[in-house]
Amino acid sequence: MIMENQKLAKQLMKKSKTARYERFGRLLSLSALLLIMAIVLGIIVFVASKGLGTFFKDGISFKDFFTGTLWNPGTKTPSGQQAVGALPMIVGSFLVTILAALLSTPFAIGTAVYMTEISPKRGAKILQPVTELLVGIPSVVYGFIGLSVVVPFVRNTFGGSGFGILSGTFVLFVMILPTIVSMTVDSLKGVPKFYRQASLALGATKWQTIWKVVLRAATPGILTAVVFGMARAFGEALAVQMVIGNAALMPQNLTSPASTLTSVLTAGMGNTVMGSLQNDALWSLALVLLVMSLFFNLVVHMIGRKGAFKK
């Protein structure tokens, strides 16, 4: 009996093939994950080291870069400094982003409220696929439509060439709309049912319930949605580049040709030599884009932490 026990114990203690396979598999999936992490770190490190070169290698001051309004790297400004003032692009990027968000948010919230509060059936059947399709349309197609519809429209209505901040805003408005809608829908759906029932039971109208209870409760989620939309607008390259006019000038008005960080990057990167000041300056723009993207992420995190639903 004891002999048998020892035999069994030995069998049970032998490390089986299964155990080795488990360790192997776990390691394999972990390494896939680490690879993704390494890529993210790689992107940040590469773009940062390239982008900082303008300041540390080429000796451009942060002040000149962020406040200068003349962008023509390689040449000098009338006052003798390098012409790497990125302010026009930074202003351009922020302008189109903020304007598009301002325009998009009411429409997005309205649509989302319609989908969750007023007609969930039609919301699921028509508007859900519609927003999914809008997300799916590639940005070059938005750019193409911007070029062939929005720019002529702006030209005929407001005068000028039609290229500029306004056209960019219109294009981005449609592009970020579905992003904000679908995320707002999620946060509205997260509002517990009894909030609505309680409000209606107190005699509030449907609209009062939506306005004072549901939207109020979903505010953190809606804010997150808007920030995500802004992040998308800020980083959008080709669609904006196709309609904004690509003039690295401070925008005089909404219909004068302007530029954004992304538009200058896409238009310029191919025409510069690696390592030159012209090229380094472009990488600095990319770095600004990257930092802004990280910033948007941070904001989303902060909203999430503050406004998480307590159930």
């Binding site: 773009v47 980083g235 884009l289 993207s293 948007f296």
Partner: peptide, 10 residues
């Protein structure tokens, strides 16, 4: 959430 142009540049 990284702009695809940044990914492209990388």
């Amino acid at each position: 959430s990284l702009p695809s142009v940044v990914v492209g540049l990388f």
